[in-house]
């Protein structure tokens, strides 16, 4: 057991536990706070995978924006947040069955793949993934068209969200 493996197991345990609390806890505000903890764990995994930009983006976009948006939505629908009684629908048994089936199916399928136990290859010491990512996102030979389409999609979604949530129609 290297220290990195111990760190991985700790973070994975915390993240999965937080995710489990997100889907089972009764109080919606608590669920949103558990979601924030789980998203932090995933940011740690991005750091372990040498994707520093994605880790920062995870903290800014998911924790800074999406979670806050969730908490706002929970507060705006406040009566539901303090609902007494179960927040899990009565058919949760088959939902758990389907989830377990999906997990075992994925694990079985992945375990048959020959690259399953690959070790992490060393990064080319001359290459910086962050510089590569920045160049790829804005160079015409790279991904500038998908990048611009993603920004247009975001603008359209935000205008659409304002229109949908508008009070007077």
């Amino acid at each position: 057991m290297t220290p990195l493996q111990i760190l991985f197991i700790l973070v994975a345990g915390v993240t999965l536990g937080a995710a489990f609390m997100v889907v089972t806890t009764r109080n919606m505000v608590h669920a949103a706070l558990w979601l924030i903890l789980g998203l932090f764990g995933i940011a740690v995994f991005f750091v372990l995978l040498d994707a520093g930009f994605l880790a920062v983006a995870q903290v800014i976009i998911y924790i800074g924006a999406i979670s806050i948006l969730m908490i706002f939505a929970i507060m705006l629908t406040r009566r539901i947040a303090q609902d007494v009684g179960s927040q899990i629908s009565s058919g949760w048994g088959w939902a758990a069955g389907v989830s377990l089936l999906v997990f075992s199916g994925l694990a079985w399928m992945l375990s048959r793949w020959e690259g399953f136990h690959n070790q992490m290859p060393a990064l080319d010491p001359g290459a910086d993934p962050l510089i590569d990512l920045g160049k790829a996102l804005v160079s015409p030979a790279g991904y500038v068209i998908p990048f611009e389409i993603a920004s247009v999609l975001l603008v359209a979604a935000l205008i659409g969200a304002i229109m949908v949530a508008w009070d007077k129609i």
Binding site: L16, A19, F20, V22, V23, I88, S89, G91, W92, W94, A95, A96, V98, S99, L100, V102, F103, L106
Partner: peptide, 9 residues
């Protein structure tokens, strides 16, 4: 799978 359970249940 945990997320899927949340969506379904």
């Amino acid at each position: 799978s945990i997320g899927l359970f949340g969506v379904l249940a």
